[in-house]
Every structure is written in C-alpha cells, then in structure tokens.
Simulated scan of single mutants.
Amino acid sequence: MAVRARPIDCNGNHSLPYLDLDPNLTYRIRVVNTGSLAGFTLRFQEENLQLIQLDGGIDVEPQSQKSATSAGILFPGQRMDLILRRSPEVDDQAPSSLTIDLDQGCFKYPNPALTPSHTFPIYYNNPSIPESNINPSAPAPIPNDTFHIDIERASSTSSLLASIPAKAQQTHVVYTKIEKLARLSNIPYGFFNRTTWKPQADPPIPLISLPRHQWDRNQLAVVTGPEPEWVDLIVNNLDEGPHPFHLHGHNFYVLFIHKASIGWGSYNPFQDAFPPGLSLPSASSDPEYTPYDLTRAILRDTVQIPSRGYAVLRFRADNPGVWLFHCHIAWHLASGMAMVVDVLGDIEGEWAHSALNL
C-alpha cells in the first residue's frame, strides 16, 4: 500500500517483497483481508497448508487432504489461520513462491490498470545456499495448484457444532440492496429493507444511551428482547454483486447459503414452505426437524452472501449491546448498507420486530 512515508512508484523497478523461511520449521500464518472490495486466494508452490481456524480463533474440522497448496477465497473482513510446512518431497534448495490471486467476482468492468495476480519469491534460510545467491528482484516461479482448501465449504469442529439447537426461538428476515432513488438525487445508497443507515444524528447521542423511541429514522433494528435467545437472521441479497457481511459482538453459525441460477433467490420463511436451494424433505412429524445440515455448519463473524442469494445465520443473542451488522466493503458501508441488532435491551419499540417481516 502506498502511504506518504513510503510512496510506491508503479513505473519504477523495485525489489519484490519475499518470505525468508527455515525448511526445518513449521509456521503458523494468520491471514487477514483488510481490503475494501475483493477477496483473494493464496497459492504456494512447494509448501503444504492446513487450515486450522477462521475469523480470529474459531476452530475448523481438520481437513482430510494433507497436501493442499492453496486456500481461499478470503473476503474482506475475514481471517484464516494456516499451518505452513515445506513439502517433504521437495529439495530444500528448490525455489518456491507465493501467489496472491484477487477474486474477479467483484469487478463488474475490465480494468486494464489492475493486476489481479502477484507472485512473490520464498527463500529458505539454508546454510547450503549462499546469501549472495538470493536475488529478491528475480521473477518467482508461479505455483501450480495441487489441492485447494475451499474455506467456504469448511465446517466447525464437532464440539462447536454440538451447541446448535435444532430450532431458533426467533426468526428475522431482511433484504439488502444498493439503489438509486430519485428522492435521494439518484445517488447510490445501501439499504436494509427500506432503511439506509447513518450514524444517529437527532439527537447525536449513542444509541445505547437513548430510549428506542428517540432513535432517528436511519436505524433499522433487530430487537432480540430482554432474555438470551437463539436467533435466525435470514439475509436476502437482492444485488447483482456479492456482499461480505459482518456482525459485531457475536459469532454466528452459517447454516445455509444459496445463489439462484435465475431470479432473485430470496427466502422468507413466513411465506415460503421450504428454503430454496435445498432438497424437498420427506414428510416428518418430528418437532425438532430442521432442513439444514447442522453437522456442516461453520461458526464465523463475516459471511460472503452471493448476488441474488441468501444466507441463514443462527446466533445466540447473549451479549448485551446495540451491535452493527454491515457490509464490509468500505463504500457500501459508507453508503448505508448497515443495520443494528439490539441485544438484551428493553422491550420498547416492538415496531422493529414487525417491520423486518414486511
């Protein structure tokens, strides 16, 4: 990143950053996508990866594939922890590299100035390799994928999944989209239902310090009530592009994600008999029946919801506060693609419950 203290001349010749590793050591690497738009994938040429955690310390079920060389896609706001090992079949003196590939799903139009793939050399601190032979400016060999870890298909460990109830005690439905409206001068604004979020301004006091009847019209809220309860939040993305959504204050289980091949692909359990994208169930009188495969759920705090799709998120509303739920693409949040989740507050303002189900 170019900053004032460290400018980057894109037309000049500069040494590539590189990794200096010891072939006899195992490394734990935490990768954070601090970008404002695109996801990315990491690809290693001569190293094996093991995914162990997502989103800052949430354990995942160990992968059966032991020779993975790439992992992703990691979307804005998401994190992953990897164990990195030099492949035992590779000579310690063999060159290696790391390639970072940007996900093209967020780029609607071609950009000739964009280089979506960057490769960086990896050097090993091996006494048999003279330091004079290390040339950071030399082009690095491009990795060839052998096996890939799709982190969107990972599941949490069985101990984490054991706490998911078959049914939630509350269900809330929201729809999100960026729209240009004449009443807003045709400027793009992000919406949840019919509300585009802005910080509380009238009066300009933190929401948690105000009774709900004094919140201004820019605050759409899911109100979970005064007691801890399990909540299903169904988020319908009506946009032609995906959105990475992040919830503050809580982790949530991602029970199901669906992208429609045609139409909008939204889901409203108050109107639809069954979630789109799932196989129709056989008749069941079991009151604990759930259409979701809870053994494949993943606990996260940021989820990528595809265009014209939806996600079913289940969380335990037990952390008191007024928490922001928002798109992690910077200008989508700035445009108002956010809402709040009011947890363990007072029961005043039940209008918020019903408004979400319109």
Rank of each mutant, 00 (worst) to 15 (best):
residue 209 S to M: 15
residue 18 Y to V: 05
residue 188 P to S: 09
residue 46 E to Y: 02
residue 323 W to G: 02
residue 246 H to M: 10
residue 208 I to V: 14
residue 11 N to E: 12
residue 18 Y to W: 11
residue 173 V to D: 04
residue 163 S to L: 10
residue 232 D to W: 05
residue 260 A to I: 08
residue 124 Y to M: 05
residue 74 L to I: 15
residue 187 I to S: 11
residue 23 P to H: 11
residue 88 P to H: 11
residue 13 N to F: 12
residue 191 F to D: 00
residue 41 T to Q: 01
residue 304 Q to A: 06
residue 217 R to S: 14
residue 43 R to F: 09
residue 197 W to M: 02
residue 259 K to D: 06
residue 11 N to R: 11
residue 288 E to K: 09
residue 130 P to E: 07
residue 208 I to R: 11
residue 238 L to F: 15
residue 255 L to D: 02
residue 295 T to V: 06
residue 243 H to N: 10
residue 231 V to K: 02
residue 87 S to M: 06
residue 44 F to L: 13
residue 250 H to I: 07
residue 233 L to M: 13
residue 282 S to Q: 13
residue 120 F to M: 11
residue 160 L to F: 05
residue 141 P to I: 03
residue 176 T to S: 14
residue 256 F to V: 00
residue 43 R to I: 02
residue 24 N to L: 10
residue 111 N to A: 13
residue 131 E to A: 10
residue 349 G to K: 03
residue 158 S to W: 11
residue 75 F to V: 08
residue 190 G to I: 07
residue 54 L to D: 06
residue 2 A to Y: 15
residue 171 T to R: 07
residue 105 G to I: 07
residue 56 G to W: 06
residue 2 A to D: 15
residue 174 V to C: 08
residue 27 Y to Q: 04
residue 43 R to M: 12
residue 200 Q to V: 01
residue 290 T to C: 05
residue 213 H to N: 07
residue 135 N to H: 12
residue 173 V to P: 00
residue 191 F to Y: 15
residue 305 I to N: 05
residue 214 Q to T: 03
residue 300 R to Q: 10
residue 302 T to Y: 07
residue 83 I to C: 04
residue 293 D to M: 04
residue 352 A to G: 01
residue 147 F to E: 11
residue 209 S to T: 09
residue 62 P to W: 06
residue 104 Q to M: 14
residue 350 E to S: 14
residue 307 S to T: 05
residue 292 Y to F: 15
residue 202 D to N: 15
residue 149 I to F: 09
residue 324 L to T: 12
residue 183 R to D: 15
residue 68 A to K: 03
residue 282 S to A: 10
residue 264 W to R: 11
residue 337 M to K: 08
residue 258 H to A: 09
residue 222 V to C: 09
residue 240 E to T: 14
residue 125 N to R: 11
residue 181 L to N: 10
residue 96 S to A: 14
residue 219 Q to C: 07
residue 282 S to R: 12
residue 223 V to C: 07
residue 249 G to I: 09
residue 263 G to K: 01
residue 204 P to K: 08
